[in-house]
């Protein structure tokens, strides 16, 4: 126990008036409290900022964000705001990141970078209408080279509807070496072959399994041919031998396999087409993401 308090409670029992004791206790308590808080200097904004930067560099973005938030609450610090937003971006909280970036737009040193990051996060929110709207508003897009946003919009369309993109305008937006990769992706999107589901169904109706072979499932196609053929043969053979029940049983099975083979071929073509489209979309999306959505990264160390 504090020696002052010990004295008051033990040695001085019943010898002084209550008021005096009360004031002494109050003052001593206050001084002890003051002594404690004066020692805790690890939570000052400066120390929090240092710690937040350390967490940020260590890629512990969630903790870094909360430390930056504390720094910001004690006074605006543009770098802290920017880093808080960037931390949110890294952990996928794009909507909140956008709010922080917006705060850096007017008359701030990080105006340009904040706008770039604003649009990067806006794109990731997957709201194309909002992206188009904000890219047309000077408050949000002034200072950003127009082609940067334009190519994000066009490439976004390319991912969703590869066939709808005007190649002349599309290629002009990119410079080598990016342009070469874009051209290669564009050519690839044009050279993909899609299967006609009705054609697959008709092929299988004429020759069981042929539709599956047409969609690239050769093993399944041959199995369909063998199973349907065999069941049909057994059915005919049994009917010929006077075993009506077995004949009809195998006949029904043969019909079931025959119908299933037609339906399966139609589906197989649909699945094949969907798979081609999805794989292309994933490939285009990954290219976009791996190239940081064709936007420059912040020009200070620690960003990736």
């Amino acid at each position: 126990m504090n020696p002052g308090l010990t004295f008051i409670f033990t040695k001085w029992k019943g010898s002084a008036d209550l008021a005096l004791r009360f004031w002494m206790l109050l003052l001593i308590s206050f001084s002890s409290y003051y002594a404690q808080i004066s020692a805790e200097d690890y939570f000052t904004p400066e120390n929090r900022l240092r710690f937040a930067d350390h967490l940020f560099a260590d890629k512990d973005y969630l903790r870094a964000f909360y430390e930056y938030k504390e720094v910001i609450s004690s006074g605006i610090n543009d770098t802290a705001v920017f880093n808080a937003a960037y931390s949110l971006y890294k952990i996928g909280r794009y909507s909140e990141a956008i709010d922080y970036y917006t705060g850096l737009f007017i008359n701030r040193e990080l105006d340009y970078q904040a706008k770039i990051e604003f649009f990067r996060n806006l794109y990731l929110l997957n709201l194309p209408e909002r992206f188009l709207y904000y890219s047309s508003q000077s408050l949000y897009s002034s200072g950003i080279e127009p082609y940067l946003l334009k190519r994000m919009i066009v490439y976004g369309d390319f991912i969703e509807r590869p066939s709808s993109v005007d190649s002349t305008e599309f290629f002009q937006l990119f410079e080598p070496p990016l342009a070469d990769s874009i051209r290669a992706l564009y050519s690839e999107s044009r050279s993909l072959t899609y299967k006609d589901p009705w054609r697959a169904a008709i092929y299988s109706a004429i020759l069981p399994g042929a539709g599956k072979i047409y969609t690239g499932e050769t093993g399944d196609g041959l199995t369909s041919l063998v199973v349907t053929g065999l069941l049909t043969y057994i059915a005919i053979d049994n009917l010929g031998a006077g075993h009506d029940f077995r004949g009809y049983l195998f006949g029904a099975l043969a019909a079931y396999f025959y119908a299933g083979n037609i339906y399966g071929s139609f589906n197989s073509a649909m699945i094949s087409n969907a798979s081609v489209r999805i794989n292309l979309k994933i490939k285009l999306g990954n290219f976009f993401r791996n190239n940081n959505f064709f936007l420059p990264l912040p020009e200070f160390p620690g960003y990736e």
Binding site: P3, G4, M24, I28, S31, A35, A39, E40, D41, Y42
Partner: peptide, 21 residues
């Protein structure tokens, strides 16, 4: 009172703040 106040304050500021914190 004066003694206690001073010792307490100096214990905080001049003692070992890093350690305490």
């Amino acid at each position: 009172l004066a003694h206690l106040l001073l010792t307490n304050i100096f214990a905080g500021e001049g003692g070992s703040p890093e350690f305490t914190g």
